[in-house]
Structures are given as structure tokens and as C-alpha cells.
Amino acid sequence: MTRHLLALALFAALFAWHSQAEYYGFELLAEIAVFAILAMSLDLLAGYGGMVSLGHAALFGLGAYLYSWLGSDMVGLSAPLAILGAAFGTGVIALAVGAVAVRVEGIFFIMITLGFGQMGHEFFFQNKALGGDDGLFGIQRLDLSGIGIDLSDPGSFALAALVSAALVYVLLAWVLATPFGAVLKGLHANPNRLRALGLRVLTYRAAAFAFSGTVAGFAGSISAQHTQFITPHLLNWTTSGEVLIMVILGGLGTLVGPVVGAVVLVLLRHELSSITDYWGAIMGGFLILVVLSRQNGLVGLVERLLPGRRG
């Protein structure tokens, strides 16, 4: 409950910032929203399901490319259908990859997701029809002018992205409260017990991977609409690493932690990099300090400082 209250406060703060923000603030907020969704989807997999992936950015990038491809002249779907297509198309591919990848665990899972992710990166890097390494441009945004919202306006777009992130938080919190969520947590904590109960562990792990991939694909479709330009860089393992840092910095398996992580990392990245060329070292040092503190990220730290409950 504390965590949901924390999430409520955090989203309230982001919306409050939005009401005060100008152009550049809108850009930051949209970026935060995109990464918050992506990091939450990774938390579902890594924090709750115990499957730490270094290929998550590939699913994110896949969603971005699917959205752009489906909405382009090559296919010509309307934007709402392209968003659905991006999310569920990514989910289907994640299911296929997951069915294979979940057979291994721990460091092996990290490596196999890295392998699949890099193959995806290579596919888009080489694919001339999709722009190769120069990327795709001229991507359309969802048209909500029918209900009086102009998403080409940065403020409206940032607001829509924030609302999406808040809805994803609610959706994931709900999923975690369902029996499926209970099994997911059990997969991590005690897989043998689930096996003894007659549950097909691998099926559940694959399902979790596919669901997480669907949400990552959705994040990709928003990212493509935000920058209106995408490159294979989105799929690279270094992007996966950044998202993993967000999750860990915020607090693994807390759902609100990834949102905290996204806020902190996006802000740090932009503010530090205009001050010093060595911002990478500061971010890395920050990560080390958080790990050395032996708390579960910033959320763990906050929970410890709050009286009463301990996380």
C-alpha cells in the first residue's frame, strides 16, 4: 500500500510539473513516461518473475519499428491500429522468443536474451527497406483531433504519455494482484513448489515474458510517436542496460521503483551531460552507491526511512 501511495504522489508530482512546464519540460516528461513504461515492464519480468533480461530494449525497439511500419505507406494502418499492432505484434514475437529463452535461468537467461536482442538489433541495422542504420523518419502521431486533443502539441503529447504511464502502472498493479501475478511471484521465490502444485512453470514464464514484451512494445510505439524518428540504437543492449539501471536504481520488484528510476535517470542524464562530459562516471558511481547501501534501490531507502513498515 505504501508503494501505491508513493506512486500516487510521484505521478501527482509529474502532472503538477506538467502544468508548470514549458517546451523543454514537456520533452523530458514524455521521455520519462516512455522509459517509466518500459522499466515497469522489465520490473514485472526481472523484479517479480526473477528473469533479468539484457534484451528488453530489443522488444521496445521492435514495438517502435512495428508502429512506424504499420502506420507508414508500406502498410497504411491507422494510428490506433498501429499502436495495437505494435503492442500485440511485439507480444507474439516475445512469446516465440520467450518459449525458447525461459528454458534457461540466471546468468544464462541474461545471455540468451542478450543474444536474441542483438540479433534483432542486427536485423534492423541491416534492413535497407526500414532505413538501416540511418533509421526511419516522418513517423505520424495518433490523431485525437476528433475529441479536441492535438497531439502534435508537445504539451498535449507529454500529457497523453504521462496518462499512458499511469494507466500502465494501474494495469500492472492489477495484474500482479490476480492469480497470474501470484504465480509470477512464486516463479521467482519458489519454482519447485509451483512444480509440485502441478503448474507448468515454463509456460508461465513464457507467458510472463510475452506479457512484459507486449507492454515494452507499447512503450516503443509511444517512443516512436514522441521522437517521430527511430534508429536501431533503440534495440541495442546498451539501451537494455540503461533500463535495467533504472529498475535497480528505483527498486527491483516494487513497480513504483522503475518509475522513480526513469525520472532520476532521465533528469540526471540531461542535466549532468550539459555540465560535464564525464556524466557516465557519475551515473555509474551513483549506481554503485545505491547497490552498496544494501537497500532495494531508492524505494527501499525511502521505505526504510519511513516509520513502521519495512520493505
Binding site: 557516465g280 562516471a281 555509474g284
Partner: peptide, 14 residues
Amino acid sequence: VLVTFGLIFVLMDA
């Protein structure tokens, strides 16, 4: 593992 991940960035900038 995470500490060594952070170290990548620190050592690279160093």
C-alpha cells in the same frame, strides 16, 4: 554484478 556494471561507466570515463 551490478557494482561491476556501474564500474564499466566509471572506468571508461577514467
